[in-house]
Design a protein around this nucleic acid. Structure first.
Ligand SMILES: [Mn+2]
Ligand SMILES: [Mn+2]
Ligand SMILES: [Mn+2]
Ligand SMILES: [Mn+2]
Lengths: 257, 257
DNA sequence: ACTATTATTTCGGTATACCTAAATTTTTGG
DNA sequence: CCAAAAATTTAGGTATACCGAAATAATAGT
């Protein structure tokens, strides 16, 4: 029996299924998968059957889709490719952080394993991409400081920006213009009344005593707030978000699942 | 009407049609194209019709296939991509010259125009790839010193290796082991009797007075002889190959065809 | 000039990855 | 509980890029 390498489509399906569970653990549904891939629901139904035949996902009709161990391995390898490529484009070819996602999206399917490993070595085996996302190592292990989406944090929370979704280049350019990037120190100030925007403050210098002054205030729309993740450094009294226990969060894969 | 970008297959067809005429000018036939692409003749017939519909080739049934101006432009852009990628892989990622062809073969379809131009700039806009092949500039212009295939040269001819076909990685490793690479100075010594191998001599140091001593002799099989091109520096008496007139050979494209 | 060989195209099929519309199952709200 | 809405799958169909076998055109040898 000849084992065909996964097609680009299969690689994308598996990668998107994985990405959905990277920051929370509800498994992805058919419709959500279709939306993220930009294809019709019916296409997903067909492809999921194919993925199941290849033992990359578990799936019962009308229920959500979960990666198998083999599927997770493939997904992590794609995520590694994608994030290493983004890092390389920024560090070696002068790309800006808002340009790299699209380019990596195509390249990830075309480069060889050799290419990936030479690139990784040249970069010094980085562990975070230009948007703060963790880069799995060659063995599929991934580590990430516990973080929360900005829109889930109550006023008073302080933290370091640990990741920013790279999906919308415009948002990235906007944030950069306002001095917000990976590792920026931030504090949640509050919300404008009646479901208004989230107000945050940039903290002057990383490590220095945090001081919230008016100059650093910034209003963030919903789209921005859900795209920013904070590694919180202190819990405000009255906080409704509970801190995870450990200092690092190991992905299921690292613990053998 | 929406203009779809050429598929990878179309890009490959056009590139192979071009490559066939890069070093001689008989146009390629259906069967030759099929052989080089590794597909069935029937597939070529179908695809050539599609290429003709898209105005990339001229073709009458049962006759050879020629690129149109649009086809040539696309082909030269693919050749530029391929050769720049090969150069980049060698210079920036530590690839050896026998590894790059295969990798470039896939990458050329996946990288953006932006990627190509940033890469080219970083390399200082090189004009030759690791195998000596000329790299077209962004405008599709290409220049090459007039050269002859080693197997077409009579004994006595001297010259500088101007290009080596990169198709067979094993051949490249073999040549490297025997001290033959791009710009190596060479002299044709003769042929073993009764259709035997071609004997050549490596000339000691480039520019220095050429001296053929026994230590530098090497037998080349047919496959090797047709893969090596020499920019001849002197014509031996009794030569059957006529030297082209000009100092540089401009490709048809450069003169507007 | 004519036949045998070779080259090329046409024909009927396959695989992948999509789509829309219709059918079906699940979920929800009263 | 049960109908209406929402989610999901199935059915039927398209485009691309292949294939092998059959048909046809070109070419070569006598
Ligand atoms: Mn990305
Ligand atoms: Mn990223
Ligand atoms: Mn090559
Ligand atoms: Mn080359």
């Amino acid at each position: 029996m000849k084992t065909t390498p996964p097609s680009s489509s299969i690689e994308d399906y598996v990668k998107v299924i994985y990405s959905f569970t990277e920051w929370q653990d509800k498994p992805i549904t058919s419709t959500q998968l279709a939306a993220r891939l930009g294809v019709a629901n019916s296409s997903v139904s067909e492809m999921v059957r194919k993925l199941k035949d290849q033992d990359l996902v578990e799936h019962e009709p009308y229920s959500p889709i979960r990666l198998t161990a083999a599927g997770l391995t493939l997904a992590l390898s794609m995520v590694r490719r994608h994030r290493l490529l983004e890092t390389y484009l920024v560090r070696e070819l002068g790309y800006t952080w808002d340009e790299v996602h699209e380019e990596a999206e195509l390249l990830e399917h075309a480069v060889s394993e050799t290419f990936i490993e030479r690139m990784s070595a040249k970069l010094g085996n980085p562990t975070r991409d230009p948007h703060g996302d963790p880069i799995p190592d060659a063995g599929g292990h991934i580590t990430m400081a516990p973080s929360h989406r900005l829109d889930e944090l109550d006023p008073g929370h302080r933290g370091r920006v640990s990741r920013i979704s790279d999906h919308d280049p415009e948002l990235l350019r906007y944030l950069e213009q306002h001095g917000i990037g990976v590792d920026t120190e931030l504090q949640v100030v509050g919300r404008r009344p009646f479901g208004g925007t989230l107000v945050i403050a940039r903290l002057p210098s990383p490590g220095a005593p945090s001081r919230t002054d008016d100059a650093g205030h910034l209003d963030l729309g919903d789209e921005a707030a859900v795209s920013l993740w904070l590694a919180t450094v202190g819990t405000h009294p009255g906080c409704t978000v509970q801190e995870p226990a450990g200092g690092t969060l190991m992905h299921p894969h690292a613990t053998g699942v």
